[in-house]
């Protein structure tokens, strides 16, 4: 019984968090790390909320008057020290995490280009004989780091594949680089994150992560 519950609850939680665009249903290292950070922060935030609620409830419920409580307890410990310690720890780990995610040169790196338009995406992938251009579908190899060089042709767009990594804006006149990586081959949904006008809702794209053979075939120009 307990065992059944022990497997059912995580499955339910995971099931409720799955979805083609879910950041919690991660399929790459960056998205996975952020999801872990989220669950940790959720636990901490829950504890702090419960602390505040308990202190508020006690203010109304406690009967025994033991004289005035001083500023040292409330402001010194709870107001300054406690958040100071929590925030320093959080900031440090988030900084380390962010440093791991940003684009850097590394072995096996693949560089692709993405250009946002109202309302489609143009992609260029390295092929055996020059770049291969595609529209609304980005091809990458699975298990290898990919740098997406992101630009915009008209207004600001945002490149975002929630199951793989965070988002990066596509800004006219600037080129931004985002590191993404898919752990396994598969198809991942992408969407424009920055409001870009009338058809922002439909401004979507798809990322296909190939296995080694599939990527080689794509680069030779064979098949989808």
């Amino acid at each position: 019984m307990l065992h059944a519950l022990g497997t059912a609850v995580p499955a339910l939680v995971a099931g409720g968090c799955s979805g083609p665009l879910s950041t919690l249903d991660s399929a790459g290292p960056a998205a996975r790390d952020v999801a872990t950070l989220w669950w940790a922060m959720l636990a901490g935030a829950t504890l702090l909320t419960l602390l505040v609620v308990a202190l508020l409830a006690l203010a109304f419920l406690r009967r025994a008057r033991q004289g005035e409580t001083g500023a040292a307890l409330w402001i010194g410990w709870l107001g300054l020290a406690m958040p100071g310690v929590v925030l320093l720890a959080l900031l440090g780990s988030a900084l380390v995490l962010g440093e791991r995610m940003i684009a850097r040169s590394e072995p096996g790196l693949v560089v692709v280009e993405a250009t946002g338009h109202q309302w489609f995406w143009d992609f260029r992938q390295p092929g055996a004989e020059g770049a291969i251009a595609t529209r609304d579908v980005l091809h990458i190899p699975a298990g290898r780091p990919v740098h997406v060089r992101i630009a915009a042709a008209d207004v600001i767009h945002g490149f975002w594949v929630p199951r793989l990594a965070g988002k990066m804006d596509a800004i006219p006149g600037h080129v931004n680089v985002l590191r993404i990586e898919a752990a396994q081959p598969g198809v991942f949904e992408g969407q424009c994150a920055e409001f870009c006008g009338l058809d922002h809702t439909g401004h979507r794209f798809r990322v296909i992560a190939h296995d080694e053979a599939g990527w080689a075939a794509f680069q030779r120009g064979e098949g989808p």
């Binding site: 950041t23 950070l37 922060m41 988030a94 995610m101 965070g166 994150a193």
Partner: peptide, 13 residues
């Protein structure tokens, strides 16, 4: 949470 850069990259917008 949103002030943490990696989390904001996912949650932003």
């Amino acid at each position: 949470m949103l002030a943490m850069v990696p989390f904001d990259w996912q949650a932003h917008d």
